[in-house]
Design a protein around this nucleic acid. Sequence first.
DNA 1: ACCTGAACACCGTTCAAGT
DNA 2: ACCTGAACACCGTTCAAGT
Lengths: 214, 214
Amino acid sequence: MSKAVAILDEAGDSALTFRALAARIGGGVGSIYWYVSSKDELLDKAADFVMDGVLADTREFSSDDPIDDLRHIAIALFETVVDRPWLGSYFMRNVATQPNSMRFYELVGQHVLRLGMPPTESFYAASAVVGFVIGTASDLGQEPPEELVTGQTTREEFFARTVAQWNELDPDEWPFLHTILDVFEGHDDTEQFKAGLDLILTGLRLQAESLGGS
Amino acid sequence: MSKAVAILDEAGDSALTFRALAARIGGGVGSIYWYVSSKDELLDKAADFVMDGVLADTREFSSDDPIDDLRHIAIALFETVVDRPWLGSYFMRNVATQPNSMRFYELVGQHVLRLGMPPTESFYAASAVVGFVIGTASDLGQEPPEELVTGQTTREEFFARTVAQWNELDPDEWPFLHTILDVFEGHDDTEQFKAGLDLILTGLRLQAESLGGS
DNA sequence: ACCTGAACACCGTTCAAGT
DNA sequence: ACCTGAACACCGTTCAAGT
């Protein structure tokens, strides 16, 4: 069942309708309600199904540097969410129906605990890392609007066009936009994410050094 | 027009339907399409309308510490988005229809520029701060599911119940969850956000010191 | 130029009825 | 216990028709 859901997710987010899912399984529309009580619960279970894979990929990460492990885990989560922006809205949304998401959060937390900080800071740190990954990934995962309809416009053309728009703006009024123009045009989403992640992790490392035990 | 939209947003996200909006304005369903070509565009404009207020509140922030200004701006954005989780999905989604969102991004960027880092790092930094705020706010802004239907369950009861659930779990298998149990029960969303934000900002300060000019 | 509202295609959800 | 599919209420969107 969750398998059929995961398959549909690959075909796009909005494509997941009860009728389409029923047709895919080869049954009636109403039969899905025997296994799931609403569409929200369907997506909850789909999210947890995906998180099972992430968990399998990240469970074994273990070096002697907790921050380094957190970095690898975060990147793995980012890569799965950036391809499934819907996951951002449902990840850990329901504690009861998402055991794998909870296990993942626990895994992140365990690495944080190795830093030896007090409970409050550990809670904040784990939440910040997970929150940044989910937030950034589901944001960057969104396709540029309207452009896919046109069909022909590629990602490069889209960026080129926005850059061209920005270029028209007054440099005195928009100094920042003009500064980043060139780097924005050729930027890579994953690199952008990693840079932000490293800001958090350096902040965390610093905090751990001043608060941590051992 | 955008005013009517903003009013409806206060009554909740899913309450914004073309029929409800038309009734609110006192017109026909179709008339809205004269001003807006789709629901996405309606929400784009609603988002930009809200951002106009944020911009007015944050434009004047200017101390001698750029990081401190970034912190104030970020908190202001967080507070508006946490009350309007839908904003997270539409903020800066369309460059053309969201001039205020662009101005806001530029404002953040200008403070980043004061750190004197190269363009790439400046771009990454501004994006990381904005991304963290939007991501965390739209996540924390979501109401706990199903509980509002029951009506009687307050936020405290909801947390108490999840904590009770976690308490049942094996401490050997869930060391992190058990460590944060107490602090989670009484935690404040805004404090949690600020702690994560400060991790990013300390990371940023450190980077600026090693890369920055002046 | 701007508005109307019936009509259309498409949702999630329910439920009496089947096996 | 598990499935079926018509029916219902409700969407966003279109469009001929009005002023």
